[in-house]
Write a protein that binds this DNA or RNA. Structure first.
Lengths: 191, 191
DNA sequence: GTCTATATACCGATAGAC
DNA sequence: GTCTATCGGTATATAGAC
């Protein structure tokens, strides 16, 4: 693995467990075994680092979602996969997904990074709306109203559930908050 | 108004608009017209300040909710008031409620403050569960399932909707995210 | 209660040698 | 690419005069 990739991995972990403001180039240097000045060689400013973080993350998650869409038997199982993705990002209640971590520290992030996060939010919300539309056709989710409203509501729900669960250091709070939505999923057929 | 109260007011505004980490005793001194050292006279450490903030805030909000409960014609109008409270806290999309602001920076807050925030979350969730129970009796909300599940879901929804709306600097995102829930409220009779 | 002055620590970032 | 050394800025917090 390249040093750049190693730095990005540690930076993502630190950002998601401690928050963007709560880790420094010194922490990153300690984690990778090089010196602060060498970290600056790879990412000249923290603005550059945060932008690289959200770009890598966004690409990875969008690919995962597209794969879920293609492999799922119906909309319900695709959305169950989506819930698992956000549930797993919590770990033992000590980690957030990068999108929530970045949304929680808008003040310390440069405009270009924030714009990229907003693009990611739109991508995910579009994906969700697509699955709710699919559910209107395959009948795998109970009482779907407007797919776009459903998507906006579910996105806010999982982000809020992560925030609460991580603040309480208890991942069960996530499960509790989304359980009502989970109950609307009719898994049926395949899985 | 006492200097202590003046400091708390400005600190709450700064915490909600910029975040806990992003304001300093220097900002607080500039806002109130006294010097940094004088701020330390009123709140020796930032830990003391954050604890005072959540205690004041919690008392105020719990009183507001109890008043809403007593004055409302039914559960639906009480919950409509709850949504307005969180919607208004957003301002023009540039402010969070203190609970979300604190949940977003758990790393820089002392354990006693975090414990007080968790108590506040329980108080609000209990209030919500009470209103959903009330709705099962007055029929003012469509298809209420388990009141405790409904409460956990609605709390996560409004916190997540605030986070997203504030990150996008657009309060409409809050309204969009909660619109599906709003549609379940049957306002009817009085208001 | 408020002030000036200061202590101590850490931050992001840069210069320049190797 | 990585290093040592350092700059300028800001943070929380304290000492002691008024």
């Amino acid at each position: 693995m390249t040093m750049r990739a190693d730095l990005l991995n540690h930076a993502e972990t630190l950002a998601r467990t401690r928050g963007i403001d709560a880790f420094s180039y010194a922490d990153l240097a300690a984690a990778t075994g090089i010196r602060k000045a060498s970290v600056h060689y790879h990412f000249a400013t923290k603005a550059d680092l945060t932008l690289a973080l959200i770009e890598d993350y966004s690409t990875r998650i969008v690919e995962t979602l597209d794969h879920m869409k293609d492999q799922s038997a119906n909309a319900a199982s695709a959305l169950a996969g989506f819930l698992s993705l956000y549930r797993n990002a919590l770990g033992d209640g000590d980690s957030l997904c990068l999108c929530v971590a970045f949304s929680a520290s808008t003040d310390s992030l440069p405009a270009t990074t924030l714009a990229r996060v907003e693009t990611f939010r739109h991508d995910v919300t579009d994906w969700l709306a697509g699955q709710f539309q699919r559910a209107r056709e395959d009948g795998s989710i109970r009482e779907v109203t407007d797919p776009r409203k459903e998507a906006a509501a579910l996105f806010a729900l999982v982000e809020g559930a992560q925030l609460v669960a991580r603040a309480a250091r208890n991942s069960d709070r996530f499960t509790d908050a989304v359980s009502q939505f989970s109950d609307r999923l009719i898994m049926g057929v395949t899985q």
